[in-house]
């Protein structure tokens, strides 16, 4: 549904996005992760047809964005970071103004706007948008992104201004929209937020895609390399006896707990050996780095 080929954007000689190759399938909830300044928003601006790439191409539903931005905009919805509205108009008037660009007739506009305002809990709010709180603006932003019932939804830092209740409602809404078959592209620097709703992620750093896949795949790909060695954590009830196996490289630990570095996953052999020596195993697992740590390390690189 979304595809980029060597997508590049250069500002004043500095590449904000540098040869990005990305693919997001239909109906996916894709998390676009990266630290501030990594090029996430710039990528979204190119994908939504709001700025032209310096190099490369990007496609949404098979349409090349730079060549036909208007048709792309007809099938997408976009919630910008720090979304803004016309302060002299109510939420309903703002939505009505945007809805007119889709050629909707008055009746359709009225029904759609009422439905969306109810969805984001802004129905019955008579205030002008200029008097809205940041959270209310964010919710209205979500409504304006959905005004055309888009196939693809781009959300840039969607929970930035929401309170916990708003965040919960947002997560429910995203899940509901994904259930309708919409492709959702969530850009955020908050891993926990992306982890909560996204099925696949891409990590961007300094304008380049560092990794893409499920969270576990990405974490594994980003984990610090230890050659081909695996780390096995063992905890026993009794004192750990000396373990002898040709695959073992090293053993670190104390009386009941050890971390074994081995050339391969030898958990079956280890458990059998310990069982033969009458040692009760409380825990035996492959040690994988915490996802947060892996991402933080990638952010810092």
């Amino acid at each position: 549904m979304i595809r980029t080929e060597s997508l590049t954007k250069v500002y004043n000689g500095n590449p904000a996005v540098d040869g990005l190759d990305l693919e997001v399938g239909e109906g996916e909830i894709f998390g676009f992760l990266g630290p501030n300044g990594a090029g996430k928003s710039t990528t979204i601006l190119m994908l939504t047809g709001m700025i032209e790439p310096t190099g490369g191409r990007c496609f949404v539903d098979g349409i090349e964005v730079a060549k036909d931005p208007l048709n792309v905009k007809k099938i997408i919805g976009y919630l910008p970071e720090d979304v803004g509205f016309y302060g002299n108009m109510t939420g309903e008037q703002n939505l009505d103004y945007f809805a007119r660009f889709y050629g909707m007739d008055a009746k359709t506009r009225k029904e759609r706007i009422a439905e969306l305002l109810e969805l984001v809990h802004l129905d019955g709010v008579a205030q002008k948008a200029g008097e809205y709180s940041r959270g209310m603006k964010q919710r209205l932003g979500l409504a304006q992104a959905l005004i055309n019932d888009p196939k693809v939804l781009f959300l840039d830092e969607p929970t930035a201004n929401l309170d916990p209740e708003g965040v919960r409602e947002y997560r429910e809404l995203v899940t509901h929209l994904a259930g309708e078959g919409k492709t959702i592209f969530v850009s955020s620097h908050i891993l926990s937020e992306v982890r909560e709703v996204c099925r696949t992620v891409g990590l961007l750093a300094k304008g380049r895609l560092v990794a893409q896949g499920t969270l576990e795949e990405v974490a594994r790909a980003l984990a610090p390399s230890d050659g081909d060695a695996v780390r096995i954590v063992i905890e026993t009830r009794e004192h750990l006896p000396a373990i002898d196996d040709p695959a073992i490289i090293s053993v670190e630990g104390n009386a009941n707990r050890a971390v074994v570095r081995a050339k391969a996953d030898i958990r079956d052999r280890l458990s059998a050996a310990l069982f033969e020596q009458g040692v009760h195993v409380r825990e035996m697992r492959l040690e994988e780095p915490e996802i947060e740590d892996v991402f933080m390390a990638a952010y810092r690189r």
């Binding site: 709001m50 208007l70 976009y78 910008p80 720090d82 509205f85 945007f98 660009f101 889709y102 055309n148």
Partner: peptide
């Protein structure tokens, strides 16, 4: 003012040149 209130970005995300 549209730049200050960021409404221009919202407007440009809809199908209008």
């Amino acid at each position: 003012k549209e730049k200050e209130t960021r409404s221009l970005k919202s407007l440009l995300s809809h199908p209008v040149y």
